[in-house]
Write a protein that binds this DNA or RNA. Sequence first.
DNA 1: GGAGTCTATACAGTGTTGTGTATCGGATCA
DNA 2: TGATCCGATACACAACACTGTATAGACTCC
Lengths: 196, 196
Amino acid sequence: MAYQSENLIAQAREVREASGVSQRALSERAGLTQSHISQIESGKMEPGLSSFIDLTRALDLEVMLVPKKLVPAVLGLVKAQATPDMHIHAGQPNDKRFARAERLVKKMKRLYGSSADLDRIEDTLRFLRRVNLGDQEMQFVRELIARLERYQASAQAAPIVRDIAQNLQRLRNSIAHPVPSEPRPAYSLDDGDADA
Amino acid sequence: MAYQSENLIAQAREVREASGVSQRALSERAGLTQSHISQIESGKMEPGLSSFIDLTRALDLEVMLVPKKLVPAVLGLVKAQATPDMHIHAGQPNDKRFARAERLVKKMKRLYGSSADLDRIEDTLRFLRRVNLGDQEMQFVRELIARLERYQASAQAAPIVRDIAQNLQRLRNSIAHPVPSEPRPAYSLDDGDADA
DNA sequence: GGAGTCTATACAGTGTTGTGTATCGGATCA
DNA sequence: TGATCCGATACACAACACTGTATAGACTCC
């Protein structure tokens, strides 16, 4: 029934998936049943306000009231930082993550044909796998992989794949050629220029 | 039962009252019954997510999901603008508002005894009444009055009364001794870094 | 005092959320 | 192939949101 809460729920789902949290894990953390979460996310059921708050809290999100006029501003703020830390992350050691990601890329190449971007992703993943990544960095990679998984079959996957390739490349560069001072760059997801 | 949604609901209520919208008016606008709204606001009932969204939309508010880390930032943004325009407001010219407020203060002095803060409020109200207030300023005053009304009988009214007194005083000062330049603080939202 | 507005409250009935449990198809990994 | 993880789905049942209508108590204004 296309409610107005669709958007919020979709948002929560995106965060959940990007954090690598399963419906089951979330259900324990939030105190709802998995079936409940499934029905909420698929729009078959409208959650109560407190259920929804429980859900989002478990995802390290907060429900806030914002005057309509400020919505664009807040949106800008949120998008800029794009899921800041998100310390949730469930199990699965990094090695497995990388293995899974590389398998995914291979599968995509097999299905949709090879491409410069996919090659670049594959290459960068191989590199990053051997590096010791910090929490934030690993989180960043995890997000990109989740995005790749989600859009692998999308009709307009190409620009997204390109964006992911660029972001991975940039992370690689920042590790290979660290900036002198600057403790940490604090990644943002905006698609920026690609360097050489 | 002291749910976690208390806060949001209280916020919505504050905005409603500050905008001078009655539960009935809001009920028509939002498509709920007045009794429903009353029970929600008084915590006797937990609204569904969509009901809550309907409510807040009717108040020119938007429900947003914000990463926990960004909550202080967003809070700052919202507080800074302090309900920007809020053109809802129903009738009741300002004179009546002030009269009502002054009556309220008198009543409080009668019931709970006089206090420095109450005196200050009374005094400041008398001053502000004769000044031409802009929309935002009037809105600010309206909010403070609403708060005073709501907490007048609260057990811990004292600090709230003090806060209201201070806020009124500050507004008075800003009118009496306007700051020379400073066109705008301009809470720069854009990431803007761009250098390096 | 009387008219009007406000919020809180009552109550019966309907519909839906939400629980608990269990299963199914799909993908991954040994 | 078999063991697991995932999300979607089913079903019965308890709980409660929500409607509609109606009224009581508090306050303000005339």
